[in-house]
Simulated assay, not measured.
Amino acid sequence: MQKTLPGFSILVAMLLLQACAAQSHLVQDELQTVTKENLKYYLYYPEDYFDTEDEFGLLLFLHGGGESGRNVEEIKDTGPPKMLVEGKQFPFLILAPQNSHAKKWWNTDAVVQLLDSVVDSNRVDKHRIYLTGLSRGGSASWELATQYPDKFAAMAVVCGMTPLPYAHWIDKDMPIWVFHGDQDDVIHVEESDKMVKKLREMGHDVRYTRYKDVGHNAWGRAYTTDSLYTWFAKQKRID
């Protein structure tokens, strides 16, 4: 006959009692949370905006990590804001917020709250809201496309990182244009290669500009591509 040590029996009994005690203190509760974010931003109006009562499209631009959490003026160093400073005119409004955290990802929920507020207080065609971002802002653009698949008419992403499963949540009716340098040593070009391949396999309308011998600063070429903005202006959501 196998004998059980008294000490072992006592230990088992204590563990069973502790398990029962833990289960008896499992309490269901609920807490309503509130997320607040202080977003500085620039808003561009086309030249003829104030001469007509027409509705206009709007391009949401999300900058990269280098402009995060610093002087808001630095937003003007890249992308469409840089081109505006240089004198380029666009046929739609441009909303350029600043990520207030130097070392954190974009708070995409806060960005959408800002976007909705700007749309509601201006003459914006809700079927012509466009999305673009570079580097960290490109990654946030992919995230926004998954979380708000019914909001944007088109999206352009420049050297952005993206988890491949995002492809399953992106609206198939939203045209996408991806830009990436094949020598990018910050966010590898394979991020875009794999995402574009997956989206195309799923039937998405995707353009891909893969720059040869270009590093992480692919935005310098991508955002000076005039056809990008004519492409944006042609897109419109159909509900």
Rank of each mutant, 00 (worst) to 15 (best):
64 G>F: 01
8 F>M: 15
151 K>G: 03
190 E>Y: 05
41 Y>R: 10
45 Y>K: 13
15 L>Y: 01
33 T>C: 09
78 T>I: 05
146 T>H: 05
185 D>I: 05
100 S>T: 10
140 A>F: 06
167 A>N: 01
157 V>D: 12
44 Y>P: 12
181 G>V: 06
76 K>Y: 02
132 T>Y: 01
119 V>I: 11
45 Y>A: 15
100 S>Q: 14
129 I>Q: 08
171 D>H: 12
138 G>M: 00
50 F>A: 12
184 D>G: 13
69 G>T: 01
24 S>C: 13
159 C>E: 08
50 F>R: 13
152 F>N: 12
88 K>W: 00
179 F>V: 10
140 A>G: 15
156 A>T: 08
24 S>I: 10
52 T>V: 03
24 S>T: 14
205 D>K: 14
200 R>E: 13
48 D>A: 10
34 V>A: 15
4 T>Y: 11
201 E>H: 04
31 L>I: 15
29 D>N: 09
231 W>L: 15
63 H>Y: 00
230 T>I: 04
27 V>Q: 13
237 R>L: 14
130 Y>P: 04
105 W>K: 14
187 I>H: 09
212 K>G: 05
213 D>L: 09
4 T>R: 15
114 L>T: 10
133 G>W: 02
81 P>E: 02
70 R>N: 09
236 K>Q: 10
113 Q>R: 15
210 R>E: 09
191 E>C: 06
178 V>A: 12
106 W>H: 06
112 V>G: 02
86 E>K: 07
17 L>S: 09
186 V>S: 09
210 R>G: 07
143 E>H: 09
84 L>V: 09
47 E>S: 11
216 H>F: 06
126 K>Q: 11
32 Q>H: 14
156 A>W: 08
99 N>S: 09
